[in-house]
Amino acid sequence: MAWVLLLGSGAMEAVWAIALAGAGKTRRIAPAAIFVGATALSLGGLALAMREIPTGTAYAVWAGTGAALTVL
């Protein structure tokens, strides 16, 4: 379960990165709200996954997943 949570958190990292890019271009509230929500889910999921997965491994998977999905 921790691995599924970790991969989902990595996906949320990609969502907040894309929303952050959108929030910088406009003054609309929606991209900013998506950024805040996705950031909370991403970091919260990472914190919960790190209860069962070592910190270095969890961070590497989380960051790698988020970076790969952001590029795609």
Rank of each mutant, 00 (worst) to 15 (best):
L43I: 11
P54D: 06
A2Y: 15
A60H: 12
M1R: 09
A60C: 07
T70G: 09
A2N: 12
M1E: 06
L7F: 13
A68Q: 05
T26S: 14
A14L: 05
I34S: 11
E13S: 07
V61R: 10
G10C: 05
E52R: 15
L7K: 05
A47T: 15
A32Y: 10
E13R: 08
F35G: 05
I29S: 09
G64L: 07
L6W: 08
T39S: 12
R28M: 10
V15F: 08
G56I: 03
A33P: 05
A49Y: 07
A38H: 01
G56P: 03
A40Y: 03
A30N: 06
S9G: 15
M1I: 09
A38Q: 02
A49F: 11
L72W: 12
G10Y: 01
Y59Q: 08
A60V: 12
V4N: 01
T39N: 08
G44V: 02
A47N: 13
G37E: 01
G37T: 05
F35C: 12
A33K: 04
A23H: 09
V71S: 10
R27G: 15
T57V: 14
W62L: 08
I29P: 08
A33V: 15
F35K: 01
V36R: 01
L69T: 04
P31N: 07
I34C: 14
G8K: 03
M1W: 10
M50D: 01
G37L: 15
A23M: 11
A11G: 08
A60L: 15
A60W: 11
P31E: 09
L72G: 12
G24M: 15
P54F: 01
M50I: 07
R27M: 08
G24Q: 10
V61W: 11
A58Q: 05
A38M: 02
Y59N: 08
V71K: 07
G24S: 14
A47R: 11
L72D: 00
A14E: 05
W16I: 02
G44T: 03
A23F: 13
S42W: 01
L20H: 09
W16H: 13
A68H: 09
A23K: 07
A23C: 12
L7S: 03
G8Y: 02
M50G: 02
V61I: 15
A19L: 14
G45M: 03
L46K: 04
T39H: 03
T55H: 06
R51E: 04
A11H: 01
R27F: 09
W62R: 09
L41H: 00
A49L: 07
A38E: 00
P54W: 04
A67I: 06
T65R: 07
T26A: 12
A60K: 06
T39W: 00
L43V: 12
G56S: 06
G10M: 03
A11C: 11
R28L: 12
A17W: 05
Y59D: 05
S42H: 03
L5H: 01
T57I: 14
T65M: 14
A33M: 14
M12G: 00
G10Q: 02
M50A: 14
E52I: 03
A19R: 13
A14N: 06
V4Y: 10
G56A: 13
A32M: 13
R28P: 00
P31H: 09
W16D: 02
G10L: 02
A19S: 14
A11E: 00
A40I: 15
L43D: 02
